[in-house]
Design a protein around this nucleic acid. Structure first.
Length: 808
RNA sequence: GGGCCUGUGGUCUAGCGGCUAUGACGCUGCCCUCACACGGCAGAUAUCGCAGGUUCAAAUCCUGCCGGGCCCACCA
């Protein structure tokens, strides 16, 4: 008998062939006409100008398993690929390439430079996605449902602007001039979520102040001497007896000769520095809180370029760094610095993009209200189905810590423009119509804008307007992705209403506070509803040594290398089996990916063996006991896999399936059923043989169907060869409960230990496994499979008893 | 410093109160047995992070500490 499957092992050449076949007639497009329920995945759009690394590739592979599984459970799966093209990474690439600062050139030029970078950004990742077998709906750019989208397309930006206009008119967005994180390098305000911390060390300067009333010296330690001119108050701890006599007196700051009130305040710590501290406007967020609490007017001495302004007197015009150097020299000259002590490393807030130290500067910015909705957000977070459930806590903790509203305007270039104009005479806001992409910095306001009357300001009649120059925070853009893919306000047939909420948001744990939080917040403010049903939170793939992958460390692994070395299927099976990515980080080890590949060979050869036998036309009326047993085991796995897959757990089912294939199906069932399947001298009845052939084929089909989401290429190949059908259009099997419940009187363990014992006796005597057994006492419960065990082991005389005895 | 999570052979993992702790990769030795040598069999490698406690009984529950991760706070 010749197997239908010819080659001895699975190879990536077969993958490539299937990949090419799929590429030509992409079978995973979104079917708009289908009546099946929609299952939508709000895929994270990868950044265009950096190819995805192996860790991200792993997460996309897992998302693909989710998508493929849902297709098989009768869903119309929306699984679009987006490409993120907005924001600072593009601008920084443009600056690096041109060697010029975007802030130093006309806006038009800056944007053109960014666009040039984007044109050159190759879609290296897309090629990897295709080879990995990721079943995104489409690789074609377009506005249609499921088509590839770009976050800087006019379509996408128009929707971002529309949400702004809606929220502005609902009073959910307001403008305010308040102190905020400001990055002097990027020249823009930042949200808390964009601030990073780095350990930096500096110096404490012990500076000599004078007390006006008593004339005594007062030594105050500071790390920011350049802010001496902005001190609002000098404080000491109420319990600190050293200073209690100074309560209500006045300190005089050196150099600036400024008079400052001295008070006791619990936020001064006795042991820190000299125990008495100066509070400046603003060294850090605590200072801001303090000024607010004490109702002191701040003295702002740093401007938006990170330079000292006129309030800084002699320091005017200097950068913060230069100013610090100069004031230190000045103080040292007059012996006003007593000591200079290196500080221990402390965490300094820096811009997560440019790594510049954050300053606190007041600028007028747009804010989205969020503080007052904290309780609503908590309720939504509790309603969301988190996978794994423990990840919910990360979101709850973040909501708890939100203390200011969300600043959404930025002073950058390559981002979505704030869609507003102002009357240059009376300053009235001109709000353009929704549904179109507006660029106020280079366009006149559309005639239909709100606030215009016949092309003139409705309030004062002026016809001269100023376009808004600010743009949006990148999260203000990103947080509409589920609205965009579900065609919010875009599809006249009501696709959004029908498909809301979005079924799944898969994303990394580290952007829960940003992408997930902002999306839930914004979409709730807009629609009053929770935007997602499920959230799958993934941890990270580390390098071989257990270190996080990063470009700067140079330990980034390109999925291309893995694909070239092993192909997609070993990698995919590894991604499923290696660890629980929703629970922990795990390492990427080539050795282990390669090791996983052995299972593919095993599975391939099991299929090859079964492909020697014809599949009976119908299910035999009576099945042999051995067949009933393996069917029961199989249905158990089917049931388990289905249950776990629903919960985004592919790890446990895949691991269990792998074990089943090796340790139960191949090693024991196949060995025992061989004789009956071959039925060489017609030792068995036709029915008995058919029972074997039916079971072999049935179990193989079940294995293939359960693994289809994990191993799309191999299962497709086997199923096409043997069944002539595309496995990916098949239904995911429901477990046959009747087969599971049937009591056979023996267990898997009984079979395994019996076989192993007989084989061991033969091995110990260095005999071939074909060597006959002259007599054997076999456990009673195995009587039902006598007709299979006798020829398998070549038993001449079989007896039954409690204990196993084998004599050759 | 605070919160949340996490810690089982070199690596990954099962077990989550009860027999000498599961399986895999890798490693060592033997065997080409007709689906598979990317196979089969045998073997070595774990005081289940550490220290206490609860219990007749703990990898499993509690407390503290140590290591790793994520987040937050902290620049006198």
């Amino acid at each position: 008998m010749e197997p239908m499957i010819k080659s001895k092992r699975w190879s990536s050449q077969i993958e490539d062939a299937i990949s090419r076949e799929w590429k030509n007639s992409w079978p995973y497009g979104f079917d708009e006409k289908s009546r099946r329920p929609v299952y939508s995945i709000d895929t994270p759009p990868p950044y265009v100008n950096t190819p995805v690394h192996i860790g991200q590739a792993t997460t996309y592979v897992l998302m693909d398993m989710f998508a493929r599984f849902r297709r098989m459970t009768g869903h119309n799966v929306l699984f679009p690929l987006g490409l993120d093209r907005n924001g600072l990474p593009i601008e920084m690439a443009a600056e690096k390439k041109s060697g010029k600062k975007l802030t130093d050139m006309p806006r038009k030029e800056a944007i053109e430079l960014c666009q040039k970078i984007l044109e050159e950004a190759s879609l290296a990742s897309v090629e990897s996605f295709i080879r990995l077998g990721i079943s995104f709906n489409s690789w074609k750019k377009g506005p249609g449902i499921g088509e590839l989208y770009e976050t800087d397309s006019p379509d996408y930006r128009a929707l971002t602007q529309e949400t702004f206009i809606d929220m502005l008119s609902k009073g959910l967005i307001y403008e305010d001039n308040r102190v905020n994180n400001f990055c002097p390098g990027c020249q823009t305000t930042l949200a808390d979520a964009e601030v990073e911390y780095e350990n930096r060390s500096g110096f404490f300067y012990n500076v000599r102040f004078r007390v006006k009333e008593t004339g005594e010296d007062l030594i105050i330690a500071t790390t920011r001497p350049e802010l001496l001119c902005t001190i609002g108050m000098v404080i000491f701890n109420p319990a600190d007896k050293r200073y209690s006599h100074l309560e209500g007196k006045t300190a005089i700051a050196p150099v600036f000769e400024k008079e400052i009130p001295i008070k006791s305040h619990p936020s001064a710590e006795i042991e820190k520095g000299t125990g008495i501290m100066m509070v400046c406007s603003f060294g850090d967020l605590a200072d801001i809180r303090f000024f607010r609490e004490q109702n002191i007017d701040p003295v702002i001495a740093i401007d938006k370029n990170g330079r000292m302004n006129s309030n800084a007197g002699i320091l005017e015009g200097l950068s913060v760094k230069e100013a610090r150097k100069m004031i230190v020299e000045e103080l040292e000259k007059t012996d006003l610095i007593i000591e200079k002590i290196p500080t221990s490393e402390h965490r300094t807030p820096i811009c997560e993009r440019s790594k510049d130290a954050i300053e606190f500067i007041a600028m007028p910015e747009f804010y989205v209200k969020q503080v007052e909705f904290r309780n609503d957000m908590k309720k939504l977070a509790k309603k969301l189905n988190f996978f794994a459930p423990k990840s919910r806590q990360i979101m709850l903790d973040w909501i708890e810590s939100v203390s200011i509203d969300w600043p959404i305007s930025r002073r950058r270039f390559y981002a979505t423009e704030v869609p507003l104009w102002y009357c240059s005479k009376c300053g009235e806001k001109i709000i353009p119509p929704k549904g179109r992409y507006h660029q106020p910095w280079k366009e006149e306001p559309p005639k239909e804008s709100d606030g215009l009357k016949k092309g003139k300001c409705a309030k004062c009649g002026s016809d001269s307007f100023r376009g808004e120059e600010r743009v949006f925070d990148t999260w203000f853009d990103s947080s509409i992705s589920p609205l965009y893919i579900l065609k919010y306000h875009k599809d006249p047939k009501g696709f959004f209403e029908k498909s809301h909420p979005c079924s799944l948001r898969p994303q990394g744990k580290e952007i829960i506070r940003t992408w997930l939080y902002y999306t839930v917040l914004k979409d709730w403010l807009l629609t009053g509803k929770l935007i997602f049903s499920d959230v799958w939170i993934n941890y990270h793939i580390l390098d071989e040594k257990g270190k996080k992958m990063s470009k700067s460390k140079g330990n980034v692994i390109d999925p291309k290398n893995v694909l070239d070395m092993f192909g997609a299927e070993p990698f995919r099976l590894w991604a499923a089996i290696e660890g629980n990515l929703d629970k922990t980080d795990f390492r990427c080890s080539f050795e282990r990916i390669q090791g996983t590949g052995k299972t593919l060979t095993k599975l391939w050869n099991v299929s090859r063996f079964i492909s020697m036998f014809p599949e009976p036309k119908s299910k035999p009326k009576k099945l042999c006991a051995l067949d009933e047993w393996i069917l029961s085991e199989t249905e158990n796995i089917v049931r388990y896999s289905r249950e776990r897959y629903e919960k985004y757990d592919f790890h446990n089912p895949a691991a269990r399936m792998k074990n089943f294939i090796w340790e139960t199906f191949a090693s024991h069932y196949l060995e025992l059923v061989k004789q009956r399947a071959y039925n060489e001298n017609s030792k068995y009845t036709k029915d008995e043989q058919n029972s074997a052939l039916y079971t072999l084929n049935h179990v193989l089909d079940r294995i293939m169907l359960v693994l289809a989401p994990v191993l799309p290429f191999l299962t497709h190949s086997v199923y096409t060869d043997l069944r002539g059908k595309d496995i990916h259009s098949e239904k995911f099997p429901e477990a046959d409960e009747k087969l599971i419940k049937a009591d056979r009187g023996f267990t898997t363990e009984d079979i395994i230990s019996f076989n192993s014992a007989v084989w061991k006796v033969k091995k110990d005597k260095e005999l071939s496994l074909k060597e006959p057994v002259s007599s054997a006492t076999v456990p009673d419960k195995l009587k039902p499979i006598e007709k299979d065990i006798v020829p398998t082991h070549g038993i001449k005389n079989i007896r039954y008893g409690k204990k196993l005895v084998v004599s050759i």
